[in-house]
């Protein structure tokens, strides 16, 4: 469903994404992992067409994004890592606005909005300005609005940050249900237990380059790591912990 081919993004002399290629099959929950500054957010923003790649291609459903940008945007629901919403709109007005951006309106949107707000327990706050929302509530509102236009692909950056355990569980169930019905999710996360438990396939990147890709089994086989947990695998692939540094920190 998502094909990333030789993708490069440079900011001046700094290369954030370096010749990255991977494929997310349809109906898959795909985990996108990497240390801070690895290039995950930049890649996801390029897939959502917020950033322009320096070179390389992104194909959605086999079509390059530059060929039919509007059609492809219509297929995607993007959930950013920072929940910036319009402070002076109410929650309901915000969801309605996002649905309209994707060309949807009327009773269908109202019904779907009510369902989504109910799922995320935002109904009591639906008619209040979002400036009075907490970080987690804003995050839930953005997630709800990304589902409002029934996208075929969800690109989601760090969805669990700021969510309470119940909401995190709801989101996990939602993603699994969505994937079970044929949807595709590309999700970046630092919570390795979630990635290990939820994702069908995982890609690990560092310094903008792909380190490993596949199912948990394939990743273990690639790195000949036996029954290692994703955390151990991730740490080993990305350079591990520097225990000497820790000693230095706490020595007087």
């Amino acid at each position: 469903m998502i094909e990333v081919v030789n993708l490069v993004k440079r900011y001046g002399k700094f290369t954030a994404v370096d010749n990255l290629s991977f494929t997310v099959p349809p109906g898959t929950l795909y985990g996108f992992l990497g240390p801070n500054g690895a290039g995950k957010t930049t890649t996801m923003r390029m897939i959502a067409q917020i950033l322009r790649p320096t070179s390389g291609d992104i194909l959605i459903g086999g079509v390059p994004t530059w060929e039919k940008p509007q059609v492809i945007k219509q297929m995607i629901g993007y959930i950013p890592d920072r929940p910036y919403v319009y402070d002076k709109l109410t929650g309901a007005e915000f969801v309605r606005f996002v649905a309209a951006l994707y060309g949807q309106e009327g009773n269908t949107v109202e019904r779907r909005m009510n369902e989504l707000l109910e799922v995320f327990e935002l109904t009591p706050w639906r008619d209040e300005l979002t400036e009075s929302y907490s970080h987690g509530m804003r995050q839930k509102l953005i997630i709800a609005s990304a589902f409002a236009h029934r996208p075929e692909v969800i690109v989601v950056d760090e969805p669990m940050v700021g969510l309470d355990p119940k909401s995190a569980r709801t989101l996990k169930d939602l993603f699994r249900e969505y994937v079970g019905r044929g949807g595709t999710v590309l999700m970046s996360t630092h919570t390795l237990e979630i990635a290990e438990g939820m994702c069908d396939r995982i890609a690990i990147i560092q310094r903008g380059q792909l380190l490993a890709e596949g199912t948990m089994g394939e990743l273990r086989a690639q790195s000949a790591s036996g029954d290692e947990s994703l955390e151990a695998l991730f740490l080993r692939l990305t350079g591990g912990l520097r225990e000497t540094t820790m000693d230095a920190l706490f020595d007087e």
Binding site: A48, Q74, P80, V98, G103
Partner: peptide, 8 residues
């Protein structure tokens, strides 16, 4: 980001 990622 919202406008950029939408088909508007």
């Amino acid at each position: 980001w919202l406008i950029q990622s939408s088909p508007l």
